[in-house]
Amino acid sequence: MKALISDIKRFAVHDGDGIRTTVFFKGCPLKCVWCHNPESIDFKPQVAYYENKCIDCGECVSVCPSGAHKFTQEGHIFERDLCVACGKCEKACLGEALKFYGKEMTVDELLPLLLEDKDFYKTSGGGVTLSGGECLMQADFCAELLQMLKKEGINTAVDTCGYVPKESIDKVLPYTDTFLYDIKAIDENVHIKCTGKSNRLILENIKYIDSLDKSIEVRIPYVPNYNDNQIKQIADFLKGLKNSIKVRVLPYHNYAGSKYEALDMENSLPVRLPDGEEIKNAEKLFTLI
């Protein structure tokens, strides 16, 4: 079995407790306007071209099997339509201007990479986090990988948007220590506006996980003018759950701008950033849950 992986991040310190390694799976059922991992939305491999890093070395031209890279008087041209997403140009590129997202990997290939920092997980209370994209869109693979990790005694976390069939959750449940669960809105229309999809399944799934007394950390992106009016409702919703739940409010940031450009994707990022006061006020709503 193979999975499509967009990236692996070692020394990840914001994806659960302690020092972790995070695996970013490629492909997501939602399309959030503020997405900061746009390279993980599409279910197919993609090449990103960071124009400002290109040093015109021309190495990509010589390795590209489909003629997608060209050098003209205007410099380096990348014709995405011709790209077959083989990933060869990433390896050749001297300026690190080309990034390949979407490597196919087996559990056997992934596992040693995820165990490299095992000793750091132990001393910091960390482990491995599966994220994305939406990792549970490749739930069978996740289950197999998580099972292997648990055999190695590794703490596991699954970072999910929750928009997956209940069966997918069932598959990983036995091998998952913590769910990092995104909740973006309670009002269905707001959710559709922000992500393109309804949130009913998402709210059903979190109730289900909670009913099984699994550890959950809820993560709420705070995006002014999009879901900032939802925070109170989210707090109320979480109060209705069986267990008390750790909540993290994630202030929206726009660092991902260059990624949209590099992927030739339409940049949907909101303009306004939250200020510290807004985040503090939002966090206050969750202190009692």
Partner: peptide, 23 residues
Amino acid sequence: PSAVEGEDGLNVLKGVLMTYLNK
């Protein structure tokens, strides 16, 4: 700096130190 913020950040630093010590 973002890797070592808050209480989590202290745990990260201690994790690095103690792993280095253990090794």
